[in-house]
Design a protein around this nucleic acid. Sequence first.
DNA 1: TGTACATCAGTGAACGCGCGTTCACTGATGTAC
DNA 2: TGTACATCAGTGAACGCGCGTTCACTGATGTAC
Lengths: 242, 242
Amino acid sequence: MNEERRATRRQVLEVAAQLLEEGGSEAVSTRAVAAAAGVTAPALYRMFGDKDGLLTELAAYGFEMYLTEKREALALTPDDPVADLYRGWDLHVDFGVQHPAFYMLMYGTVQPGRRPPAADEAHGLLVRLLRRAAETGRLRVPVEQATRVIHAATTGATLALIGEAPSERDLTTSARLRDTVIASVTTDPPAPSESDLASRALALDAALENALTSGSPAVGTEVPLRDTETALLRDWLQQLAG
Amino acid sequence: MNEERRATRRQVLEVAAQLLEEGGSEAVSTRAVAAAAGVTAPALYRMFGDKDGLLTELAAYGFEMYLTEKREALALTPDDPVADLYRGWDLHVDFGVQHPAFYMLMYGTVQPGRRPPAADEAHGLLVRLLRRAAETGRLRVPVEQATRVIHAATTGATLALIGEAPSERDLTTSARLRDTVIASVTTDPPAPSESDLASRALALDAALENALTSGSPAVGTEVPLRDTETALLRDWLQQLAG
DNA sequence: TGTACATCAGTGAACGCGCGTTCACTGATGTAC
DNA sequence: TGTACATCAGTGAACGCGCGTTCACTGATGTAC
């Protein structure tokens, strides 16, 4: 009954999630989870290996919850990737405020240099958004830099909100920071007449990146240059962008 | 021997600080601190009340350390408060990177709506800096708003840096965010010819705030209006600023 | 179709540990006469 | 100056607890003949 086992596992995670939301990360002990889920301790160890395994899966569960909650809102705007950046910011902050304990499990830095994998997935989501913006020439700086800046600012805004008592929370701080930061890495839609060297170089670079990393080359995605030539070209593009 | 007791207390805090820096907050248990400091458990309880008392004093000790480290760098620039904002940002981030465990004790949100008092003191430092900027007409938004935005962005940048492995840390992210955010709340030095309504209104408001809250009125700091008049005036100033 | 065996998720019970905290007591210091 | 007493920081030892984890075992399920 593989099916049944997966259901039990799922239920254990739901119970753990509830404990986390109600009592913070301290409330999530192997014993508390096992007891609340009506499961014996060794059964839990068989499922998740050890406590760390449980927490990792719990973080993944939280990320899945995030995606489920925001599914429809996450639909991409066809021709305005920058608008998606604004929406992405708000969804991120909103999730953090709604689920502070989960957010801290996913984004709270426990040890220097160690990030939970769920945060990586969320990071990937942001990178995809920014790559799309770069492809349409809306990015003023390289994707990597934009990612770092937006990530730092978003988590800062969210954690600051979480740290405040619910009564004195002020969402305009997040909105203000959002507008400032996103504006600083994006450009207005380029008018056909004007030639913005930097953003066009970045747009081409993003397209190259995409073509090189995507598995199966579709029409228009083959790079007809040699590897060394491509590398040199991308180096020049970076220079034009800088 | 009150002197001696204070020295012991100090030494216990130093030992606790060392444990914190080496092993993170988990390493700071009452037993571990007592043992490492060569003190019995009840002695430690007599000194700090309970574990929470110890942690609170430890956070305060960390803030004191911050001030000591940065003492000379914190000297204010006489006529450019905005430059001080830049410097303050860098000092903050630098401290966080140098002392991640302390930083997380001081700024890491443990429970929603609860902030350690040491963070309040650091917050006060920022408010003072911004009030000075407002007084010279260099602020584009009210002090309160500027504080929130800068605080969120600074902690976000610092925590992001701490979360990265030391090898892949990139200080330009912090610098970029710093420039963007500070520029968004400040203005260039006002030229005498142009009359920037908003920033002048804010400058007057900041001066009023100062005059009202400072204990002993010095020359030029008395407010000759009635309370209700002052309140109305400040309301108008806020409107002009908005 | 029936029996013998292997696999393995789950059980009941316990392991040792480090934790925060507190007990009854000691012994040094300061104070009053 | 000397004695009696009060104060109180510090001692040695223990409290009970919840923790992560593991033991030997059961019993249901699936597989081979």
